[in-house]
Design a protein around this nucleic acid. Structure first.
Length: 419
DNA sequence: TCTGGGGTCCTAGGACCC
DNA sequence: TCTGGGGTCCTAGGACCC
């Protein structure tokens, strides 16, 4: 038996937790660069503002009634880990799935799943202050749907329990549910399924397995089985090392200046190196991409250029050196670029890494330099030491006009309270 | 004018082997 | 004119997730 617990309108709820004046108002949290809507309060949904809607497509009349917030990942990330701590204290197996969702493996847990579910929801709401909903079902795919069902329920706690695939209202719910709402079915697959007459979740559940395997893939067949109540998905293993690292940003405006692009890339390399060392990994390959705005007409560029590093490394200086060479190859005069990113791949653990007979390895003094670098950051903050000069408000930096304070991680951003 | 960032997994197809 | 069969490995690209 699995549970999926999900924070309702997570980013909006985080903003409201520290600014109760937002309660009852239409609130929209914006993507990086204040580009589009990535989280909506119920009031904003009621205004007909769609998820992912670009900011500039919202009519200005409507815009004046909406409270916008730039995304504040320092705040959301911290609250997310608090939610996880509350849950981890109550169930043996936790599988964090995203910043606002967690699967719980309830096998071997109490028989009274309803009481357990209520306790979990209340605990998060009481100890963190964020509203959550909970779905319980025999498979992760059904637990996702039970969670969706719970969200539609009035009152608290929002909880839906489907102890088996024959639960009374389950079939009815699946028949009403567009197939696209099933976990793993995106808009492309939904279109292809519809062409076979499969347009709701119950139809997918009942479709012949051979057909799904033949016309789609094993993934689709697995999804259908999960809908029938047979668990087929592996646990989202926390210990699985990540396979790639990506650091990228859209610019505040379109750019072609070499020095600006080079500055931005240096900044991304610095972040990528930090991520790599935090995971205690080395990278063997590095890629850079420069992207034009795909929404504009005219020649497009987006393909990355890759190169192998001479040996696996987590040295920011080395990463930057090779990345800058790739940038020089990619850059073309007169093209307006919108986004730049660096990617690291062929990752391997630093400890016990095999060095081949012909392959070099990172000199000890470079490793020591990076350890010192990270130690300075831990002690004095991330801006204490940067690769080259990194000025604030450079043209390549993103827009963030509606940023709230990082309430839980920065003393200096706490609002002053007069005594 | 303004359209996010960061991941994972799967498959098709090409290159290559004997 | 006719031009094998069977396998592995790798990569690019598509699809998905939040």
């Amino acid at each position: 038996m699995y549970a999926l617990i999900d924070c309702n309108n997570f980013f909006v709820s985080c903003e409201r937790l520290f600014d109760p004046a937002l309660e009852g108002m239409p609130v929209g949290v914006l993507s990086n660069n204040d580009g589009c809507i990535i989280a909506r309060s119920e009031e904003l949904k009621a205004l007909g503002i769609a998820m992912g809607m670009p900011m500039h497509q919202i009519p200005s009349m409507q815009r004046q009634r909406i409270v916008f917030k730039s995304s504040n990942y320092a705040l959301y990330g911290d609250l997310s880990s608090r939610v996880q701590r509350v849950l981890a204290a109550r169930v043996p197996a936790l599988e964090p799935y995203s910043i606002d969702e967690c699967f719980l493996d309830l096998r071997g847990m109490s028989n009274d799943l309803d009481a357990l579910g209520r306790e979990l929801v209340h605990a998060v709401e009481r100890e963190v202050g964020l509203p959550v909903s909970l779905g319980i079902a025999p498979t992760r795919t059904l637990a996702k749907l039970a969670n969706r069902r719970a969200k539609g329920m009035p009152g608290r706690p929002q909880l839906c329990l489907w102890p088996d695939a024959n639960a009374p209202d389950l079939s009815h719910f699946l028949r009403q549910l567009p197939v696209k709402a099933v976990w793993g079915i995106g808009s492309r697959l939904a279109l292809r399924l519809a062409s076979l007459g499969i347009d709701n979740a119950a139809a997918l559940r009942d479709a012949p397995e051979a057909l799904l395997r033949k016309r789609f893939s094993v993934v689709m067949a697995r999804t259908a089985r999960e809908l029938r109540g047979t668990p087929c998905l592996e646990a989202h293993d926390l210990d699985t090392p990540r396979r790639s690292i990506l650091c990228s940003r859209s610019f505040g405006r379109l750019l072609n200046e070499r020095d600006q692009l080079s500055d931005a890339l240096r900044h991304h390399c610095q972040r990528a190196g930090e991520k790599l060392r935090r995971d205690d990994m080395l990278a063997s390959a590095i890629g850079v991409f420069l992207r034009t705005n795909p929404h504009h007409a005219g020649p497009q560029q987006s393909h990355p250029l890759w190169t192998m590093l001479p040996f696996p490394s987590a040295d920011t200086l080395r990463l930057n050196h090779y990345a800058q060479r790739l940038l020089a190859e990619l850059w073309q005069p007169g093209i307006a670029y919108q986004k730049l990113g660096v990617m690291l791949a062929d990752l391997s653990p630093r400890r016990g890494s095999q060095t081949s007979l012909f392959e070099g390895h990172e000199p000890a003094r470079q490793e020591a330099l990076m350890q010192t670098w990270d130690a300075i950051h831990r002690r004095y903050g991330r801006h204490a030491l940067t690769l080259g000069l990194q000025c604030r408000n450079a043209a390549w930096q993103m827009n963030s006009r509606y940023h709230s304070p990082r309430y839980t991680t920065r003393w200096d951003e706490l609002p002053q309270v007069s005594t």
